[in-house]
Amino acid sequence: MNLFELIASDYKKHKKYGGNFFTIVFFTQGFWAVFQYRIAHCIFSNVKWQPFRFLLIFMGLASQKIIEIVTGISIPASAKIGHSFYIGHFGGIIINANAIIGNNCNISQGVTIGVSGRGSNRGVPVIGDEVYIGVNAVISGSIIVGNQVVIGACSLVNTSLEENSVVLGVPAIVISKNGSKGYI
């Protein structure tokens, strides 16, 4: 997908949860953060000529910092995020620069997707498609979160999860195999 298709898919996802063009574009902080990320990621991935790359990446970092201060959402340009990405609420979201997030995912406020672990377990998560991440969840370490997973509020995920898992707790344990249908 190109930049405009990605932004359109994110907008449609936000629109699905209510709101009109005016409220989404001017009052939805999650959309602002995703919009800024899409532009910065496009520059990071596609601009190779050094004088322009340096200047545009610098401008992207400055706009990222402004969005981070205003919204409390940090999404580095180097992260890889699929289409139809939805951030439902304001603030406290930290995504590691090396994180990979699949298509059609929802993230709630207070979520951290970061680096953790020791030795071969040290690393950043790879999150599948159609994953719902609840409020204040932490996903960390060199793990793989399968497709259609639900991560409950205040959960700590530090082990890989199979598809259609519903997890909850610290550390997170599988409580069902119902998946994310109805959450996404």
Rank of each mutant, 00 (worst) to 15 (best):
N147G: 07
I127H: 00
A97N: 10
G91F: 03
C105I: 07
A8L: 13
G102F: 03
S142I: 06
C105R: 03
F44E: 14
A40N: 14
K181N: 14
L3V: 05
I151M: 11
G169L: 09
P125F: 04
I144L: 09
I175E: 08
F26H: 04
V126W: 00
T71C: 05
A97G: 07
N178F: 10
N106S: 13
I94S: 01
S9W: 05
N2G: 15
R38Y: 05
F52R: 07
Y86F: 15
I175C: 07
I101G: 01
K48L: 08
E130A: 04
Q50G: 04
P51H: 11
G92M: 03
A79P: 05
G102W: 02
G72C: 09
C105Y: 03
G146V: 08
N158L: 12
R38N: 04
Y183T: 03
W49A: 12
V157W: 03
Y132K: 02
K80I: 12
I39H: 06
Y37K: 07
I73A: 02
Y11R: 03
I93A: 03
N136D: 12
R122V: 11
S78H: 07
S165T: 14
G60T: 04
N104W: 01
I143E: 09
N2Y: 01
I39G: 08
I93N: 00
G146K: 05
F31I: 10
T159V: 15
I94Q: 03
F27H: 09
Q36S: 10
C154F: 00
I143G: 08
T23I: 08
C42W: 15
L55H: 03
V157Y: 01
K177A: 11
S9C: 08
N147E: 14
H14P: 00
V47Y: 09
S155F: 05
I7S: 08
G88T: 04
I95T: 02
F35C: 07
V126E: 05
V138A: 04
F27W: 10
S176E: 07
G119M: 12
S74C: 11
K177S: 15
L161M: 12
I151D: 01
I67E: 00
Y11I: 05
A77P: 00
H83T: 12
D10P: 02
I94G: 00
I133A: 05
I93K: 00
I24H: 01
P51M: 11
L6G: 10
T159F: 02
C42H: 14
F31R: 02
G134E: 06
I133C: 07
W49S: 11
G152I: 06
N164W: 04
L61C: 10
S176W: 10
I87P: 01
N178K: 15
V167K: 05
F21N: 12
K13E: 12
Q50D: 13
F22K: 13
E130R: 12
F21Y: 15
F52E: 10
L156I: 13
V138Y: 01
F31Q: 06
I133G: 01
S108Y: 06
N121K: 15
H83P: 08
I67T: 04
I24N: 00
I113M: 02
G19V: 03
K12R: 15
Q36K: 05
F52Y: 13
N121S: 15
K181M: 08
V149Q: 04
V157Q: 04
N164C: 10
